[in-house]
Design a protein around this nucleic acid. Structure first.
Length: 272
DNA sequence: CTACATGTTCGTCC
DNA sequence: GGGACGAACATGTA
């Protein structure tokens, strides 16, 4: 489930686990998730001390003592874990960093869309991937400048990591709901007031999600996310969750925008 | 068995 | 060079 708030939560977990630790072994259980050859990674990692962590968008970085960085991208289903004994390795652990503490940091990813790679620096990686500013850092002015040059619909733009990094499918729906803007609005038709609402909604949704460590069920009842099918509170037969938090009699609509499942409130987010 | 899924990248066509 | 669209990736879950 790794969008920005999940990755930030993983980063904090890893920061406690790996900072000031020396890597004693690099264990690959499934090389599919490696974006850099194992033969390159192992000598680059073993013996190195991890100085700290950072994050940009959905990418997490482990900062090595030679200035290079191990980049973790969690794809659709990536997660992190810690264990001491092999028997306790989380299911779907693909790669493990063995640490001088005796613990092991697990890169867990059932679907294997995640990637682990080595980069010369955070900045080199940022440039190579053409990542825009982190969604928590971008200003309302910067957002408006970038979006108001575009004549295409809003939602795919917000998912584009080169514009701003960190927003994913459910967050964009939540942001647009909170900002009361339809996902198919053409970007350059938004008013300054709407850009301000958009920016404020990004801040609200990201800070709320991080505060709850991305545990959706704990989000305020005013959040659209409770209407998503994969929320376990969406019990079949009881369709209360399919209604708008602000309009108890209005059903949340599910459509596809830019090929992605999209949830909107027809009342809060009128078209055009 | 079928449909769908939180992300990214690549190919194709206009 | 964009932009729209679809497919591919690999696998679990409903």
């Amino acid at each position: 489930m790794p969008e920005l708030p999940e990755v930030e939560t993983y980063r904090r977990f890893l920061d406690d686990l790996v900072t000031h630790q020396t890597i004693t072994a690099f264990e690959v259980k499934d090389a599919h998730v490696l974006g850099t050859d194992e033969d390159v990674l192992r000598p680059a990692l073993v013996g190195r001390t991890i100085m700290g962590t950072s994050r940009l968008g959905k990418n997490c970085f482990l900062l090595l003592d030679d200035g290079r960085v191990l980049v973790l991208h969690f794809g659709m289903t990536g997660d992190v874990g810690a264990y001491r004994d092999e028997a306790d390795a989380p299911r779907f652990t693909r790669v493990a960093l063995h640490l001088s503490s005796g613990l092991r940091a697990a890169f867990v990813d059932p679907r294997k869309f995640g990637r682990i790679r080595l980069a010369e620096s955070v900045d080199a990686y940022r440039q190579a991937k053409k990542l825009g500013p982190d969604a928590l850092d971008i200003t309302a002015e910067e957002l408006q400048t970038k979006l108001s040059r575009r004549k295409t619909i809003l939602k795919p733009l917000l998912l584009n990591q080169s514009l701003t990094a960190g927003l994913g499918n459910w967050i964009v729906d939540e942001v647009l709901f909170q900002a009361k803007i339809h996902p198919e609005r053409v970007a350059n038709t938004l008013t300054t007031a709407e850009f301000k609402r958009l920016h404020a909604a990004i801040q609200l949704v990201l800070h709320t999600a991080i505060q709850h460590e991305a545990n959706y069920r704990q989000f305020p009842a005013s959040f659209l996310i409770h209407a998503r099918e994969w929320d376990d509170s969406a019990t079949p037969g009881t369709d209360a969750h399919l209604h708008c938090p602000r309009h108890p009699r209005t059903l949340i609509a599910k459509t596809y925008v830019g090929g992605r499942a999209t949830y909107t409130c027809p009342k809060c987010q009128p078209e055009i």
